[in-house]
């Protein structure tokens, strides 16, 4: 019997602000996990710091709540050591695009099979509403003493430039749509980003539910085809997706911007070098025999013969 969305709800009291967009994200995750019937013990949510960082505690799968900005490298270690796990990263905009942006870019370069759910609310919620890297210049959410004078980074554009092979945007108050994006991202073999627009009810009086309601539209309703059908199309598709990502004022597109199933995942690249990698990854190797090393003296001499000189 397939698992229900409620099977993924943990018993922990959720202390996000009433009405927070994070609830929509976690609701979409419950539904997506259920529809994919993910085994909780083979699923891992890795998060950073801040409101989004608490996500793993509210979901009944393995949860690793890490350091500010470092969810991606923690997830990288977990996934590469045991690639049979489904690993999802929940991070805020400050987390993934501020303090942790180097890891974000590096993930694109590697194309590891991870799903990144970016909680994009333009502010640092848990430290009182400072400007996040996605807050546009000139804006002044109510907690800011002065308007923001730094430019915003566009998560979709950056993901495309970094090499992510699945790039999408969702909206936390359109849970069914977001759920579908999460399912697609998890099923995609490679680095997947979902930039989730998410109103912060306490600190962001600009990007409200009303604000997004007026602007958000679905790419799929316009006949958008994000998929690189043949590898030759890659350049054309990525340029189109990037142009589309720049649309962010009166109208904000949501949906899948870009999907490239051709670029090999990092796991496949490792397998090229270590053919046994997927069958016996680091986490599933036996490293001892009755408390002794599997490399005995004889094996040692054979493996490291380069360093051993037979004397005269």
């Amino acid at each position: 019997m397939a698992r229900k969305p409620s099977d993924y709800q943990s018993d922990i009291w959720n202390d996000w602000c009433p009405g927070c967009g994070d609830f929509g994200i976690v609701a979409a995750m419950y539904r997506a996990f259920s529809e994919l019937d993910l085994p909780p013990e083979k699923t891992v949510i890795v998060s950073g710091i801040g409101c989004s960082g608490k996500t793993p505690h509210f979901v009944k799968v393995n949860g690793v709540h890490t350091l500010h900005g470092r969810a991606i490298p923690f997830a990288t270690g977990i996934k590469l050591a045991n690639p049979e796990l489904t690993v999802i990263v929940n991070g805020g905009d400050g987390d993934l695009l501020g303090i942790g942006v180097g890891h974000f870019v590096a993930l694109g370069r590697r194309n590891i099979d991870l799903t990144i759910i970016l909680h994009n609310n333009t502010v640092y919620g848990l430290t009182k509403g400072q400007a996040s890297p996605t807050l546009r210049r000139g804006l002044r959410p109510k907690a800011l003493p002065k308007p923001n004078i730094q430019d915003a980074v566009n998560p979709v554009s950056l993901a495309l430039a970094s090499g992510f092979t699945f790039v999408a945007r969702g909206y936390s108050m359109m849970t069914e749509h977001l759920k579908e994006l999460i399912k697609e991202a998890i099923q995609h073999k490679g680095a997947a980003l979902i930039d989730v627009l998410q109103p912060c009810v306490t600190y962001d009086n600009i990007h409200t539910v009303e604000y997004y309601k007026k602007r958000v539209y679905k790419l799929e309703d316009t006949g958008w085809n994000p998929k690189v059908e043949k590898i030759e199309e890659k350049e054309e598709k990525i340029v189109k997706a990037w142009m589309k990502s720049q649309e962010y004022d009166d109208k904000i597109p949501i949906g899948v911007f870009y999907q490239d199933p051709h670029t090999p995942s990092f796991e496949e690249r490792i397998k090229e070098r270590i053919p046994s990698y997927l069958e016996t990854p680091p986490a599933r190797q036996k490293i001892e025999r009755e408390g002794k090393t599997i490399i005995d003296s004889e094996a040692f001499r054979k493996i490291f013969s380069y360093y051993i000189v037979e004397t005269e």
Partner: peptide, 8 residues
């Protein structure tokens, strides 16, 4: 650390 959590 991530890898260590999986037992490697």
């Amino acid at each position: 650390i991530g890898a260590a959590l999986t037992g490697a």
